[in-house]
Amino acid sequence: MRLNNSPILTTRNYGINDAKVDDSVFCQEITPFENIIIENADSFFNKNAKKISFSKKIGGDFDLQLSQNNNAVLNFEIDKSQENPICISFKFDENNKMLVEQIVFNIKENVDAKLIVSLSGEVDAYHNGIVKINCEKNSKAEMLFITDFEKESVNVLRFENSVDEASKLKVSLVDFANGHSIINYYSKLNGDESKSILNCVYVAGGKTFVDLNFEQDVFGKKSEASIQTVGALLAEARKHFKGTINFEKGCKKSSGSEDELCLLLSKNAKSKALPMLLCTEEDVDGKHASSVGKVSEKELFYIMSRGFSRQDAIKLVVKAKFNIVLENLFDVKLKQKLIDLVDRKLNYEE
């Protein structure tokens, strides 16, 4: 099965145009999922929500399953700002192993919204979902999306966002990938002076395969798109990164940047990357930087000379890099929790 096509193709034998996975990754029979906890969302939750349509396809049978055979549809019409974030937790367990869900957040004009979605559990989970965030004029949305499965799982996730005039969307995507993690992220910067930021951190070990396909389309003038990704690969983990910033004609005075850092913490880890800048508008400022490699020995030596073990030194450096990406997360305590979790995930034998 070939999933998650790159928006621009390149030489086939590079193996980056799509993610090749075994057919067995797809699960035909879907059991119910009831363990959903929603907090701080009473007045926003639309109980009459219908299924949504989406245009970004992952491929295989996943898209059909998501539109016809889903087991959760959540719709939030957020028409006023509030202090506490809306929290949605999907707790996976033996009776709730499969989640095929659609979540929509409509952020109304001038509203400030904070959103947290988390998927976690200690089972071999199956997830096939989509999140749509529509930011209306002059709104502001910040989202933290976490996946944390303790056992080898399948995580197929799409994002399809639209960002209108003078609105700002910031998504922090934290993926403790285990098994298969196939993520397609798309944001369309419709309006002038819109801003769309994607910060992604991931840690993957075992034989995990992570396929990230991040795309931002800039249409509005004076807009800003950013994709920042930092990840660590352990054991025999593999990662594909496809990043695209597309400056469409007319998006004058806009800027876009892509940054990718992939830390290889094992000699058997493998990284592929295709970070693209596509530009049909002259008056823009597009940048891209990426680096791949292990943690610098010089840096490690310095830290170890201050009494850290090698492994702790590595952890310290990795956490520091993650910290930069998660720096402005709206919930400081939550950020600390995440960094602690990273610490735990990085316990490994070199």
Partner: peptide, 23 residues
């Protein structure tokens, strides 16, 4: 357009890539 592909199969390497586009 900038379409750079990299494939890294060993940890002990340093790869850096910078790209810019504009007027």
């Amino acid at each position: 357009d900038t379409i750079p592909f990299s494939n890294v199969e060993v940890d002990d390497v340093e790869i850096s890539h910078e790209a810019k586009v504009g007027k």
